[in-house]
Nucleic acid binder design. Structure first.
Lengths: 344, 344
DNA sequence: GTGAAAGCGCTAACAT
DNA sequence: ATGTTAGCGCTTTCAC
């Protein structure tokens, strides 16, 4: 920023007109005569004039920038969300500032602060796993900055939200395991305070119930990353001989446990069928390819941005929070058993 | 931004002092008496005052924000770079604005423009695959905005750069294939205008030469994504019986071709050994795990940000461009054959 | 049709 | 120790 890009004042001085004339000419204000307008426009073009977005935001009290807070962009689901947001945002003239919380509460607080400091017009947030205190979001809410929660939400704050039907997704995939002959299904889940994890676990339980399978509490382990699979290695291998399927809360955990079992002599899916959640690209690259449910990250991002734009356009909209629930779709692959012929 | 967050003027009015007093008190200017300072600080705290970053940037002509342009955050290598950048940036009080070019030239031009409009202090960029015209970057350079190229660089512009030793990486991995008994090695590469692809291809050729293996031009195919593997499916399967190894320009292409070959009855690595480039997490999750070279994305990001900070601190530094070359490290896994015992 | 002036939020040189 | 003023880049109301 040192080298002073040309400003409206520079143009005004150079052309011997006032700054306001330049400003008007550049935005085709009808008052300005065609002559001056052309002269100014030509000059602006020549010196490659670009309006200072900072000054504009300050003046207009609108930054045309929205903030995104996302746990970790490395995960395909999250980066798909971002792409969905960006594509809508760009097409409507918004910029985005992306912040990663790294699943860390205090980093998330800093992110909120930084985005507020930059006077973003609105916030799109996917809450960190470790967040249990929501006061930073409440402060956003109290300042009436529109905010949309994505995927991971906060029940205590009444905002628009875009979520996956985790309950049904888990129910569908667990039912699929049952239909293909599995009865003793291990669930690798998140800590229960994470709502999506809770809902997926409930969906799992619901599927068991609908199929009259008794629930065995030992068949739920908190284990939601490859690292945790490694930590729980002994426990999992001990249980393995007694189960015929695993439903993991996400795909990379599913893949990690699949590799663990394969390396220990289990046949997938004959000994143990495995299913994940999310349809990460990795699902099609592993052997056998992973059965999972597709979560529409890109579309969720688009929808969230659209909701935010609606709020921005209708600031006084005291209308009820919008809730968009995305259904998931089963992606049946070779890591689970085939449906009996009669069922097909 | 509608709901007017409290400003310094609001505080001044409320407390019956002038704005400058508030400004000074808040930053512990020695002139301000302890009494007023405490009074002001307490009040600011109470109303949760936060300086407007936009106004500050405008005033100071420094935004403390740096722009990142990256092809696609979905790729692990790129998101690692971003994490490296962010961690250094945050620790030095910088914010980042991340833009994706989606490997698209005109999107990249827009990104540059948007970041300039926001008056970022500097730019960290990894050029899009499809970019052949660099005038947008030259304009940044001419405006004396410090810029560091990462991984994919532009030779025509004299800036700091942080790159991988692609030539040596490719040489190391090709040599490894040769050492383990392979002689007819197919290379799946990028379009030759992409410098990293060019260098990797040269490294491949160099390894052949060093080992007195004649180069067969039919053994280089432009094919650098899973989609392109699919498009080149027939060609690859036709060549497959005549080769004993494949070196792919990146890991996801390597994995895609591995799956193609496995599904067509080839044994990996006995029939065909496969090696990638980058050490994406996927490399350890596939079966057999992929031999590849590790590219230090996170460290490269850190280094690039450090270089940029140096430039920012020394604006008049007419010193030569810094070039940091990161070596890669072989990650030997099961997708390539074992070294003969005598070599170990 | 064009210019002068005020103000967005903040800082700093210059008063007092 | 505190206030006044001007200005960062821009828009907009009000003059002429």
């Amino acid at each position: 920023m040192k080298p002073h890009l040309t400003s409206i004042n520079d143009i005004a001085k150079a052309l011997g007109v006032s700054a306001s004339t330049v400003s008007r000419a550049l935005k085709d204000h009808p008052d300005i005569s065609e002559g001056t307008r052309n002269r100014i426009k030509a000059f602006a073009q020549k010196v490659n004039y670009r309006p200072n977005a900072l000054a504009l935001s300050l003046k207009k009290q609108v930054s045309n920038t929205i903030g995104i807070i996302i746990p970790e962009i490395v995960h395909h689901f999250f980066s798909s969300i971002i792409s969905g947001i960006e594509d809508v945002a760009y097409s409507k003239g918004y910029r985005v500032m992306i912040c990663q919380s790294n699943e860390d509460f205090s980093r998330e607080e800093m992110n909120v602060q930084a985005l507020m400091d930059h006077r973003v017009d609105g916030l799109l947030v996917c809450i960190s796993k470790t967040t249990e205190d929501f006061s930073h979001f409440k402060s956003v809410y109290n300042n009436q900055i529109p905010m949309v929660f994505l995927d991971r939400i906060c029940k205590e704050i009444e905002t628009d939200r875009v979520i996956t039907d985790d309950f049904n997704g888990a129910r569908i995939i667990t039912s699929h395991l049952i239909k293909t002959g599995c009865k003793r299904i291990l669930h690798l889940g998140t800590l229960p305070q994470l709502l999506i994890g809770h809902d997926r676990q409930q969906g799992y339980l619901q599927a068991l119930k609908e199929n009259h399978i008794d629930f065995n509490p030992e068949l739920i382990i908190t284990c939601d990353t490859p690292v945790k699979v490694d930590e729980n290695r002994d426990k999992i291998l001990e249980i393995a001989p007694h189960i015929d399927a695993i439903f993991a809360v996400n795909d990379f955990t599913a893949v990690a446990v699949m590799n663990l079992l394969k390396n220990n002599g289990f046949d997938i899916p004959e000994d143990i069928a495995i299913a994940g959640f999310g349809d990460d690209p990795i699902a099609t690259m592993v052997d056998p390819p992973l059965t999972t449910v597709e979560q529409q990250g890109y579309q969720m991002g688009q929808e969230a941005m659209n909701l935010l734009i609606d709020r921005l356009a209708n600031p006084e909209g005291s209308k009820q929070p919008d809730v968009k629930i995305f259904q998931v779709e089963l992606r049946e692959r070779k890591s689970t058993r085939q449906l009996p012929f009669s069922e097909k």
